[in-house]
Design a protein around this nucleic acid. Structure first.
Lengths: 357, 357
DNA sequence: TTGTATGCGTTATCAA
DNA sequence: TTGATAACGCATACAA
């Protein structure tokens, strides 16, 4: 087993000092042409690579960003990670992933664990339990320790940091208006409880679109579902709820669903009830997932561009990290140094498939 | 901005030495009752947490495992990561994720990057390009540097390390025998090119099942697809290929597909051609994904239990890492110390849904 | 019971 | 042009 080679070993074998080796490898021209080349050649021969951990300790930066998400087996989140990874890699950073599993305590634990030197900054999306408790102290503490955070998708006003969101409101308005334009008169909404911000915003978009289209918003057409129904074992409950919605509202001719599962399930139930899609019922879902592409009929969606979200979030974080570096270099005044926080909105886009006319 | 507190600061403020603080916080009973409590109280008050990087440098271990996968926007791989994460977290490890994007050079780069001190060991699945080139030097170099690797799913004999695989062969045999038992006489196979080991093994399983069932294996019933067809923009090519398969073999009454996309697409094409599922055609796919649950009819599958794979892989890796520790402690003889490498097989399971009788 | 010195691998400062 | 030394934050062998 060849142990990892260090500067010290190279120095010993070449009978020079460690600092000489260090400088030679950094191509410092303080070092004589010959020694420099001799050292570089030998280092290359031994396949020397500097130890990241030692560098991190010395530089007080890890070149690693921590990503904290509620769930990884989820098309949207994995797409975001992919975006983060791409940008991080390009810019010389690694990505360390933590899962909160929608739990407040796991989120806190994970943050604390990573905040102790393992990462330079976070990109995260808040867990549902945290949103429900409205306890954001861990975020603010992390920030006040000098570790920047970029939040995406599930964000919150109580924390001051950069944010990347999709245009939930406008996207929903667009979707619902499209249904109206396509001739729908009685448009149902299948959404989540309000504490999930994206659910709330998408609901508001639905209402606004109806208002602006001067279509009366029938309260009966709104189905607010508890999160439980998304669990696989509760699929029949979900189907049942949606079936009730359809049966109570026989005139329903359009559905806007705030996520993929709701949308696809709605299509399934509709077909079971003998409704033809898109002739009797048109459906649009807010999602980016795989189900919509392969459903039959394939689902028209409001695409949230997860990868772009990830890319933008990573860029914002790294920009801030590297800005701090410059500040330290140039000794900028503490007070003028704060850069305003940005909330970046990723535009949604309607991708038309077969579930609309 | 409260800077992170270090032992040194605590020592200074309490007018003791750094080592005293270090020992007091480690609850060493060399330290007097009073000082110990005083230091612990103060540290708690300042919310002291040891710096991971410094610990890593000192202990020469990072408590971090590197996960290298070809693709993250993929149900199987994200499920595996979830399994790894759960076990890693339980056992006090972090997870750092690298994506090869099926590219050889990205795989090599990522490994080198992480191997320079950032991680204690790898859990990985080989990229397609690497499999095609059959160049495994980076794995063997990493191992010979003393960094253990656990491979999962896409593994290779040329590298000696722990492995976790699903029982591709047996699972396929089971699936095809089920089709035979259900009365299928002409069973098609939709598979990948042979260089992807799982595709090859599943193909072998198909052939074996037919042989053992004394059903003649008709070469025309086997459709080997290039990987390109899995790309979204090539969906129509995929459909077309499958349609040809069906048209050339009108007697086909069963299909075994080695992945979810092939299976779901086969059902779609079959329905288009007017075949009733499962009455005219029964379909089984090798997968764990979401499409199969929500397809209509829902797809009967051979489940590969991604999460279990991840859990087992992480356990194997951490076991080996911690075994090395013990060896170092007890100064075991270098030669006796090697522990045999294990190849752990995760049993597959058929989950019956609506696409079979 | 506590403190001093050393080292993990690196770079930067200061001397020579 | 090169080398010795200190420092990053921590743990520990050795002194006191």
């Amino acid at each position: 087993m060849k142990k990892k080679v260090t500067l010290k070993q190279i120095a010993r074998e070449l009978d020079v000092s460690v600092s000489t080796v260090s400088r030679a490898l950094a191509d410092s021209k303080e070092i004589g042409e010959n020694t420099r080349r001799r050292i570089q050649a030998f280092a290359k021969f031994l396949n020397y690579k500097p130890n990241n951990i030692a560098l991190s300790l010395k530089n007080k930066k890890t070149k690693t960003i921590g990503v904290l998400i509620p769930e990884i087996v989820h098309h949207f989140f994995s797409t975001v990670i992919r975006g983060i990874e791409i940008v991080a890699n390009e810019r010389g950073y690694n990505v360390i992933v933590g899962l909160s599993n929608e739990s407040f305590s796991k989120e806190v634990l994970n943050m604390e664990m990573l905040a102790n030197g393992s990462i330079d900054g976070f990109v995260l999306s808040i867990s549902k339990e945290t949103l429900l408790k409205q306890d954001y102290h861990h975020f603010n503490e992390t920030i006040s320790q000098g570790i920047p955070i970029v939040m995406f998708d599930r964000v919150v006003n109580e924390v001051e940091c950069d944010k990347v969101i999709v245009d939930d409101f406008k996207g929903s308005v667009k979707a619902v208006k499209k249904l109206v334009a396509n001739g729908c008169k009685h448009i149902g909404l299948i959404t989540t409880m309000d504490y999930v911000s994206v659910g709330r915003l998408r609901t508001q978009g639905y209402l606004r679109a109806l208002e602006e289209s001067q279509v009366y918003a029938e309260p009966d057409l709104i189905l607010k579902l508890d999160d439980m129904v998304s669990l696989e074992e509760n699929l029949d409950i979900l189907e049942n709820e949606i079936e009730q919605l359809f049966k109570k509202n026989p005139k329903i001719d359009g559905v806007f669903a705030v996520n993929e599962l709701y949308a696809v399930t709605a299509m399934k139930v509709a077909k079971k009830l003998g409704l033809a899609i898109p002739d009797d019922l048109q459906v649009i879902g807010f999602t980016d997932g795989v189900l919509s592409k392969h459903a039959s009929p394939s689902l028209t969606i409001v695409s949230q561009h997860g990868q772009k979200i990830g890319e933008k979030a990573a860029d914002l974080l790294i920009d801030r990290l590297e800005m701090e570096d410059e500040d330290n270099d140039t000794n900028v005044n503490e007070n003028t140094r704060e850069q305003a926080f940005e909330t970046y909105v990723i535009e949604t886009e309607i991708i038309e498939r077969e579930s609309t006319k």
